[in-house]
Computed example of a mutant assay.
Amino acid sequence: MTAAPADLLIDRPAVDDGAALWRLAKDSEKLDLNSSYSYLLWCRDFAGTSAVARGADGEPVGFVTGYMRPDRPDTLLVWQVAVDGAHRGLGIAAKLLDALTARLAAERGVTEVETTITPGNTASERLFTSFATRHGARVEREVLFGAEHFPDGPHDPEVLYRIGPLTDLTAR
């Protein structure tokens, strides 16, 4: 893997980033695409628990969206991670995840991360298991939603990855 560009800026998304996040999710061809409206709302209402990576021109080249679990306030649920095709393989997703969790550990006391991954999504499996290794955490897996839970046609099960407790959350 090549290193992420030195001029990469990771910060909170703004409403004006919503359209770009929607396009990145759409172009990923892996993520369940939400409405463009939902990405605008996400950038407004969950900017504090999300992060965007900006290239030299200031435009988003990647993002991670998440929220704090209401019943587990020390747990960040990562909703989506996407990186522009031209910027994949540079470690941007890992930098986003590390920076977001470091920020939320300092601001909100995050000690665990959860996400769901469909079987066969090896890129996400690698991203989250390597994240756990970097932060000295264990990974527990269980099916959160089976295929039978989805009303809109065939859908792979969503496997919950629970990662924690996290140690050494200084941004890398």
Rank of each mutant, 00 (worst) to 15 (best):
A147T: 15
F131G: 12
R141D: 01
G120A: 07
E140C: 08
G146S: 14
E125F: 02
F145A: 12
R138N: 10
A147H: 09
D152N: 15
P119E: 13
A147E: 15
F131Y: 15
H155N: 06
S130T: 14
G120K: 06
R141E: 13
T116Q: 09
G153Y: 03
G146F: 01
E140Q: 13
F131T: 10
T129M: 03
T115L: 12
T115Q: 11
H135R: 09
P119H: 10
G120N: 05
G136S: 14
L127F: 04
I117V: 15
T122H: 12
P151E: 06
D152C: 08
R138K: 10
N121H: 06
H155A: 07
F131P: 05
V139L: 07
G120Y: 02
G146C: 02
G146D: 15
F150A: 03
F145Y: 15
E148L: 03
E114Q: 15
H135F: 01
H149T: 09
R134I: 00
R141Q: 14
A123C: 01
G146I: 01
S130R: 11
S124W: 08
H155G: 00
F150N: 03
F150D: 02
E140W: 07
A123V: 03
L127C: 09
E140T: 13
T133W: 09
E125H: 08
F145W: 13
F128L: 03
V143S: 13
F131S: 11
F150S: 03
F131K: 08
V139R: 03
A147P: 09
T133H: 12
R134F: 06
H149I: 00
D152L: 11
A132R: 07
R138T: 13
E125I: 06
D152Y: 10
H155D: 02
H135K: 07
R134G: 13
E140I: 06
R141A: 09
T122N: 11
T129R: 09
A123L: 00
P119T: 12
